[in-house]
Amino acid sequence: MYDPSQRVILLVEDNPDDELMTLRAFRKSNIHNPVIVVRDGAEALDYLFLQGKHAQRDPGIRPQVVLLDLHLPRLDGLEVLRRIRANEQTRTLPVVVLTSSKEERDLVESYQLGVNSFVHKPVDVTAFFDAVRQLGMYWLVLNELPSPRRNG
């Protein structure tokens, strides 16, 4: 169980190598925030909307940022982003697309759907570590979020 005051990262990544490199990059950069890893788009939505196996999780723990791959099983990243932005409770949640996609249409559609940032996964390990470090520093240290809205 995580302390709700901690800034949690939701990593939506189906590639185990990219997951491992991202987690290693956070550790190497002294970013020790809890990282919740989900491996497909449907599970990401279950986590965010407290459904399925995540129905009993603490609703007070809201991710500080979602790192979202686009090419995911069951439900692709663009559909995940669409549903995040369509829901009042998650509309302001920062979402960073972290993808190997070089498709211009993925970039354009991500921004049309309201992504906060779009980052290509560098192929070079050192560049990948640096990109993840910079993402972590910005979204976890510098960026400020509004308080989540409460129903009722």
Rank of each mutant, 00 (worst) to 15 (best):
M137N: 13
I9S: 02
D69A: 09
R62S: 08
Q56G: 10
R57L: 03
R57S: 06
V66W: 00
V65G: 00
T99I: 03
S100H: 07
I31H: 06
R91V: 12
H71Y: 13
E13K: 04
Q134V: 05
R7N: 14
L142Y: 07
E19Q: 14
K53S: 11
M21Q: 13
M21C: 08
V38N: 09
E104H: 12
L23I: 09
H54K: 09
D18E: 13
R27N: 09
A42W: 05
S147G: 02
L10C: 03
L78A: 02
V66R: 01
V125Y: 15
P146T: 06
R105D: 12
K102W: 11
A127L: 14
L11N: 05
S5R: 14
R149A: 13
G52E: 04
E43L: 13
I9F: 00
E79Y: 00
D130T: 15
V95Y: 00
D18F: 05
N30L: 14
E109D: 11
L23D: 04
S5A: 13
A86N: 10
D14C: 11
D40W: 05
L72Q: 05
M1V: 15
S29A: 15
V132S: 11
L145F: 08
H32S: 10
D106R: 08
D40R: 02
P4N: 14
V12D: 00
V37F: 06
N116P: 08
R91Q: 15
V12S: 01
P122K: 04
P122D: 07
L23N: 08
L70D: 01
H120Q: 10
Q112S: 15
A55Q: 14
V95M: 00
P94I: 12
E43P: 13
A25I: 08
R133Q: 13
K121H: 03
L145N: 12
Q51C: 01
D76S: 03
A42V: 15
G60V: 00
A127G: 07
V35D: 03
V123W: 04
